[in-house]
Nucleic acid binder design. Structure first.
Lengths: 377, 377
DNA sequence: GGCAGTTCTGAATCTCTTA
DNA sequence: CTAAGAGATTCAGAACTGC
């Protein structure tokens, strides 16, 4: 099995190149395949200027059958090189996304989300014959229904001002200085994607050091953003002009050197601390009375790190669930202790003690290093 | 060939019923088929309450093959009953929309647009495992690449306050009084669609008197909106409980009697907040009579968000200016509506509705997009 | 009645580690 | 492999409760 050389562009047809890479070696695939646009003649704006549509050879297919065969080949090849914990992103429009989506489901990929790139500045429909085509669709999937995968939930939530990131993303088209131009001022690539789009994708679904593969690299947006965010990358591209432009572009990118700048740790990945340790270290003496925030229920701390209430005994979680009659409970945030704060007596969650202990252990160097990002089911 | 009886619900399996209808007799099909959700066990919110997921028998399929066969059967039957100038709408999620989209392309349907219903108030992802599933996808297609079809471009542009209607529509879920409930307070139907969605679809792709067919009628949203907008309709549904609820609902609808209220022959200009959204969201039903503060002039509201008076038609601003013989007019403050306030009937400016909508849109919080910046979708 | 706080709910493929 | 236990996790809006 060949080893995996990263941070380089492979020239050639993507399915063939992919078949020569080692299996289960890639963390994230981002694919921007030909859309099979099936454009008719040329399109004129109301002022009779010509719309520079996609008419390149790489977007010409005889029929759906040929496009489907092409799609299945590269998807299958991607499935092989993906790690079992890896995920695949594909972007497309209504011309091709149903073909792609159905094929990837048939190949066993498990759709996690479809994501809408809502364009803030789309090209209008000049003829007034349809709705302005103002979005593109991304499909995000894991290797199977039970596969674990990386989703940096907290990073996405932070990016969205503290609210869960939704499946619709409003971003402008790639224009202005970001858009690569030739010396004669022509677009280098007809469908260059905005870096903001790749920024969000890579931040959401990978960790620093991960390998991001783009089987249709084009002008190199994926590689440029991956490099900047401290990820390794692999690009596959046929066209030597695109490759030249991408190489120059990627070379000009300076990576963010501090990994903490490009990760938002999940609570799930923090070291686990048994409640018993809190008692053992004397942060909470046996016999201390805990209660919930509203003071409805109470329980006492036992020396072995279990709780005892009027009717129940067990872990902080078990007793919390039992007194509420709930199926489950996070005891750390449910149970509170009295604390003398300035003058008034207040109730604070015992999770504060866990946080203090984590800080102490980090200072001692005894705690396990928090893993970056969270691996999800 | 049987004749086409309209404005009624046929009970039975949709493909079988469709096969008994005359061919090429329907103008628009709107289909909301089972999504094949494949939900696992139960899901609890962070507060331990149970999510009432869709587990109905009609959404259970063995595998993709069975779902695909089901899909192809009803799509093929719809193709037969559609006029050559007819169009088909299908709504779905990532669970099924790729299967549906690929099959309808295979059957010869020609995709005109995919349209995103962006939900302003979706259910969150409670476990923090994915992006909030905040949208659904509609596919709109004609019978073939060269088929003519109805698209009321000007009506859609008017509804979007003078800007081309885009392929992404922001609308709230069907909740509150619009949501049908049983006597015991349960949902009549687990997936009732908002009337605003059907309002836009029917206004966009049909004319008064056209026949709208819904092969999965459910609680009858399609029929209710079609009737109100002066279209004929046909519903197909298996479940007798859904049928009973739909019949009662549809019977309570009063059609807009004047066809000129639901079509748009002329152009108009561009204010900042589309008055059409006020209409579409049901804050002001088509046919409502508006007047100026002194009661000197009056005009009626049309379904696309324009007004019609004795001598004039156009935007709220244009008609306001025209009736006064003034060069310009702010329709938002000029036009008033009657409101039942405490005991007395009063006239209040329709700007109140805009303010309410602005508050809602601000709460929707879409950040830097034009949508939150004023150009309502 | 009015206002504030609480509860409820919506097409949802919704955990991970250790024993 | 399964089972058990720890413990992480929510936004908008309507409906309801209580003062």
């Amino acid at each position: 099995m060949p080893s995996l050389k990263t941070d380089c562009i492979y020239q050639g047809a993507c399915a063939e190149i992919l078949d020569r890479l080692p299996e289960k070696s890639v963390d994230v695939v981002f694919a921007d395949p030909p859309y099979n646009l099936q454009l008719g003649g040329e399109l004129l704006r109301p002022n009779n200027s010509r719309v520079d549509g996609v008419d390149d050879a790489w977007d010409r297919f005889r029929d759906f059958a040929e496009y489907d065969a092409f799609t299945e080949a590269w998807l299958r090849a991607c499935h092989r090189v993906l790690k079992d914990t890896g995920t695949l992103w594909v972007i497309g429009s209504y011309h091709n996304i149903f073909r792609v989506g159905a094929r990837l489901q048939d190949l066993g990929f498990w759709v996690l989300n479809d994501v809408i790139w809502r364009k803030t500045n789309p090209m209008p429909n000049f003829r007034g014959t349809r709705f302005t085509n103002a979005h593109e669709t991304l499909v995000w999937c894991s290797k199977g229904p039970d596969a674990r995968y990386t989703f940096n939930y907290e990073a996405m939530k932070a990016l969205n001002d503290g609210l869960q990131m939704r499946s619709d993303w409003s971003l402008p088209l790639c224009t202005g200085p970001e858009r690569l131009k030739t010396e004669t001022g022509e677009k280098v690539h007809p469908t260059q994607k905005p870096e903001a789009l790749l920024h969000r994708i890579i931040l959401a679904s990978s960790n620093p050091g991960d390998v991001i593969l783009d089987p249709f690299l084009g002008s190199g947006t994926t590689a440029a953003v991956a490099k900047r965010l401290g990820r390794r990358w692999i690009g596959i591209e046929q066209d030597p002009d695109y490759i030249a432009a991408a190489r120059a572009r990627i070379a000009a990118v300076t990576p963010v050197d501090d990994p903490t700048l490009v990760t938002t740790p999940r609570k799930r990945s923090e070291p686990r601390i048994p409640f018993g340790t809190v008692v053992e270290r004397g942060l909470l003496p046996p016999g201390t009375v805990l209660s919930d925030a509203a003071g409805r229920w109470s329980a006492r701390v036992r020396a072995d790190g279990t709780l005892i209430s009027a009717d129940h005994r067990g872990s902080i979680h078990q007793v919390g669930a039992a007194v509420q009659g709930a199926p489950a409970c996070n005891g750390w945030t449910f149970w509170h202790m009295r604390t003398q704060d300035t003058d008034a007596e207040r109730l604070v969650p015992i999770d504060l003690l866990r946080q203090r202990l984590r800080a102490e252990m980090a200072a001692e160097g005894t705690g396990t290093t928090p893993e970056s990002g969270g691996a999800l089911q």
